[in-house]
């Protein structure tokens, strides 16, 4: 499949501050491509260069074969953007906003159908200022899609949404993709990236640390698997420590914690079965995307709780 977005050696500074040092990636047609990274990593600046809002200091960008700076007018027809802090006039009504924005485009989508799809039909004559955070976010997505774009760039899509609204939004994004729209998703939520993205560019301090599928990123970190269970009867630790796949066995009260490689689970359960020991409340902890994130960037992602608290007044 051809690349829809091609970014090569992008560099952008604001005065002495380097926002994007050296970023390259390409996005294939029809995929959901995630840009994941800690706050201040250069995610937003990168997509703003892709959208043509900022002029890169160095590097090449091509979107649908267009140069975001030179072919700006044409790009705006084909790329829909949702900005992190893009509001609307407080007294503008939902229906008016959609009708207005759809009038900007050559071949707009049916804005009334879009309004239904996003669950805003009964808000048509509600003013923007009276909408909840989730409703504002949905309107913002609708406005990004109202021009029938080939590519949609969504920046911090679900920040400030409650869990239900966030799941609904994810469903919506998958529906949009199934229509053939290529999606670039900027996020710092692991769960969102893991659920939605076909591939992820992990960005830290202005550089691409890795580009891979969520599973591929997880595999890169060689964290050990941890198996916890309550044995039905006491047993000799050597039963397990003698297994080549097991590295350690620890007792925490009634609970036994076994660490080992990804074969350890098989080995442990078969040994226990052979010795007629039942493993109650068996749990396996594997490396997650979050572990990969921490391992690759050396930082903890901002937690959802924190993100929600940092945007008061929404929802």
């Amino acid at each position: 499949m051809p690349a829809v977005i091609e970014v090569q050696n992008l560099h952008k500074s604001y005065g002495d501050t380097v926002a994007v040092d050296d970023v390259s990636f390409s996005v294939q047609e029809g995929e959901i491509f995630g840009i994941l990274g800690p706050n201040g990593a250069g995610k937003t600046t990168t997509v703003e260069c892709v959208e043509g809002l900022r002029r890169p200091d160095r590097g090449e960008i091509s979107v649908l074969g267009l140069d975001p700076q030179r072919d700006r007018a044409e790009l705006t027809q084909r790329l829909g953007a949702q900005l992190q802090d893009g509001e609307l006039p407080g007294r503008l009504k939902v229906g008016e906003a959609l009708a207005l924005y759809s009038s900007f485009y050559r071949t707009p989508a049916d804005w009334r159908a879009l309004m239904d799809t996003l669950g805003l039909a009964d808000k048509s004559s509600t003013r923007y200022g009276k909408l909840s955070g989730g409703q504002k976010q949905r309107l913002s997505i609708a406005l990004a899609l109202v021009g029938n774009p080939r590519v949609a760039v969504l920046d911090e899509l679900t920040t400030g949404l409650d869990p239900q609204a966030r799941r609904d939004t994810w469903q919506l994004i998958e529906d949009v993709r199934s229509r053939g729209v290529t999606i670039v998703l900027v996020t710092h939520f692991m769960e969102e990236a893991e659920r939605l993205c076909d591939r992820i560019a992990l960005i830290d301090t202005g550089r691409v640390v890795a580009v891979d599928t969520p599973a591929g990123l997880t595999e890169r970190v060689q964290t050990e698997h941890r198996i916890r269970f309550q044995p039905s009867v006491p047993f000799d630790d050597r039963l397990l420590t003698s297994l080549p796949d097991v590295t350690s066995v620890i007792h925490r009260g009634d609970v036994v914690v076994v660490t080992g490689n990804d074969n350890a689970l098989n080995a442990v359960t078969s040994v226990l079965a052979r010795n007629n020991i039942v493993a109650r409340q068996l749990r396996v902890e594997q490396a997650s995307l979050e572990d990969a994130f921490v391992a690759l960037t050396g930082r903890h992602p901002e937690s959802e709780q924190h993100a929600r608290e940092s945007r008061p007044g929404q929802n």
Partner: peptide, 25 residues
């Protein structure tokens, strides 16, 4: 939920949006 891909016919004349923008403002 599904997003319909219906496109309205290409907007007539030049800059239909500017008139609507002015009325909205």
């Amino acid at each position: 939920m599904s997003v319909t891909a219906t496109a309205s016919p290409p907007a007539a004349a030049s800059r239909p949006g500017l008139g609507r923008l002015t009325v909205t403002e």
